[in-house]
Design a protein around this nucleic acid. Structure first.
Lengths: 141, 141
DNA sequence: GATAGTAGTTACCAAGGAGTAAGTGACTGT
DNA sequence: ACAGTCACTTACTCCTTGGTAACTACTATC
């Protein structure tokens, strides 16, 4: 046999989860739903004022398709739509708690590291830039 | 008192962590580092053949700035650079395990939900599209 | 003198996702 | 008759991000 090249690369085993849950706005929407239970579209907008209706709709559709969120349409005038987490979505709550715990424990270390890094690289001017990492789009809001 | 509007929005408490860890390629790089320990740049490229040197460098710099990865430059010819996780980076490993566990337990449910959703919406043609969620860029590779 | 090898950097370009603004349908209240 | 409500949808623009390819420095080796 000519070179059986073992698995091309071992992909990180939670890559798909990242795509499902940690896209832009996705985690925020999920969080609100985990926190407030069954809510209407307008309510969600209230909790997430920076997200536009277009994008909110997109996220919710995506989450619905992935089975994490359930949508209930009430044929009324004016229409009423409610969103809530499914059992599958609820199963993410412990994951979120893990993330939150890590954040509580370590986020200040990260910020300290950033300060150190920026200070060091501002002095030596190694990379020429004032800040090695510009503000990311999702942070600007 | 004229309407004290409690905190504008309760931001999801792990939002910053998402920015730190779950950007494009970031988790993959971290995963390889967690798995293989101290590795050289070229090795990393071997484990992540799809990531270009430019982007790999960007990710590593970012991770270094955030204190999750340490870089060791050996003044030799040709140059040798090694990357490894810091203690802070290591502290993410349990988080990754949680994610992996969720993935192992629930990913098939997600896929089933996607199939259901697509089947349902293909029949009724509610949204007109063949697939409500096109393949995402990060999935294509 | 040409080549190889490492660890990048630089300039440029294209795609795609997010944002903006306006429209839609069906009915109710004034 | 007209504005208002809700939950979107549509058309459009823009800007970030990632990808491509070529180039750099430095030396040993052929």
């Amino acid at each position: 046999m000519p070179q059986v090249r073992q698995q091309p690369v071992d992909p990180c085993p939670f890559g798909p989860v990242v795509d499902l849950v940690f896209g832009r706005w996705t985690a925020h929407v999920l969080w609100v739903l985990a926190y407030h239970g069954r809510v209407r579209f307008k309510e969600l907008q209230g909790y997430l004022p920076e997200i536009t209706p277009k994008v909110l709709t997109e996220r919710l559709r995506q989450l619905e398709r992935n089975g994490l969120v359930a949508r209930t349409y009430h044929r009324e005038i004016p229409p009423r739509v409610e969103y809530e987490m499914t059992a599958l979505g609820q199963s993410l709550v412990p994951v979120f708690r893990t993330l939150t715990a890590w954040s509580d424990e370590h986020l200040d270390e990260v910020q300290a590291a950033q300060r150190d890094y920026d200070r060091e690289h501002a002095l030596t001017g190694t990379a020429g830039g004032v800040a090695a990492e510009p503000v990311r789009a999702r942070d600007r809001a």
